[in-house]
Design a protein around this nucleic acid. Sequence first.
DNA 1: CAACAAACGGACCGGGTGGTCAACTTGTTA
DNA 2: TAACAAGTTGACCACCCGGTCCGTTTGTTG
Lengths: 199, 199
Amino acid sequence: MTSTRPLRADAVRNRQLLLAAAADEFAERGMDASVADIARRAGVGKGTVFRHFATKDDLIAAIVLDRIDELNTAGERLLEAADPGAALLEFLTVAAHQRQQRDLSFLHEAGELSAEVTRVREQMYNTVQKLVDRAREHRAVRADVTGTDIILLMCAPNYVTSYVPDAPPDLWQRYLAIIFDGLRPEGAHPLPHPPPSTV
Amino acid sequence: MTSTRPLRADAVRNRQLLLAAAADEFAERGMDASVADIARRAGVGKGTVFRHFATKDDLIAAIVLDRIDELNTAGERLLEAADPGAALLEFLTVAAHQRQQRDLSFLHEAGELSAEVTRVREQMYNTVQKLVDRAREHRAVRADVTGTDIILLMCAPNYVTSYVPDAPPDLWQRYLAIIFDGLRPEGAHPLPHPPPSTV
DNA sequence: CAACAAACGGACCGGGTGGTCAACTTGTTA
DNA sequence: TAACAAGTTGACCACCCGGTCCGTTTGTTG
């Protein structure tokens, strides 16, 4: 049990400022965002960053954790939805929208992420699995598509639009629609490769 | 007119060694690949790198140029193919296969690329445009899909699989097939956003 | 308000980067 | 083969990075 006295008031405030500043800075400058710049943006000293997050990777992990939690919340809500096909599409929409506002995809691949991250991530995989299963049972998606497939295709619409300079902010919706059409049972052609087992 | 005496024999050899070593090094280490490592891998001093390529960005531009040229060659050949739908699919396959062997996608976004690159890139856009037009006329792809759409979706299958650790090397084919199904006329749903005009 | 721990800040450090340069080697050419 | 230009090399430079450390400030608590 790690019972410790609560954080000081200024400390909790600075922690929030840091997380927000880091997310913004990463979104703007990619992985090149430096700790010094993040600190400056948050209006704190560089040492304060390392007091809250032992390493840059820890800071990244904290950001990633928050984002996946958001998806989990949305996913679990959509498990209750009436139309399973629409629910899956909306989940993909939520995910794409999150990434549209701030593209932090590179953070997921970079550095060592905490065990906490892998835990909440697997929780999300589970939720998506269920969303897909429900959609498949309702014939909203083709039979040969798996939960893992959807996890992998989740942010493809954003990726696609990332190459367009000055893209209209909703352009990703176009590619989400195209990809989702590829997931439908009508007019589906057999797939040339088996699905991956795990992610 | 920039007429200059031909490169010395060892210089042309070193240039080739450098391009190959750089491509390998970038593919393995991403953008973090250092000029020093590239030089070592090519069996050459660091100074030699900068003699051939004034800056790291110039080296990157040279690599990108070669890759786009490969696609141009394939694309122009496929413009002669009998089945336009199959031709488009094969072009996408070639592009995905190229990126599967060495993922250098990040190079296209990074640094200032030469005017030569933009020239050959626009040439490629043109070829893709024609491939798509032919495929559309033959009802092989849906009417509301444009050449720009296909350019954007070109390497999405690789992106999708890039998140799978130890992915089977042909996994991208699965997602290419799904996306291509989304491009077909059968069972297409109206798209929620107009296509981007340029890339 | 006093006293103490918690939190802060920024100078500092080692390491790695892209790029330069002048001494040296080598291919070419007459 | 002589002579010169073209090419090579690695030590060197200035810069920036993540991370440390300690003197100082500040919130909390009795």
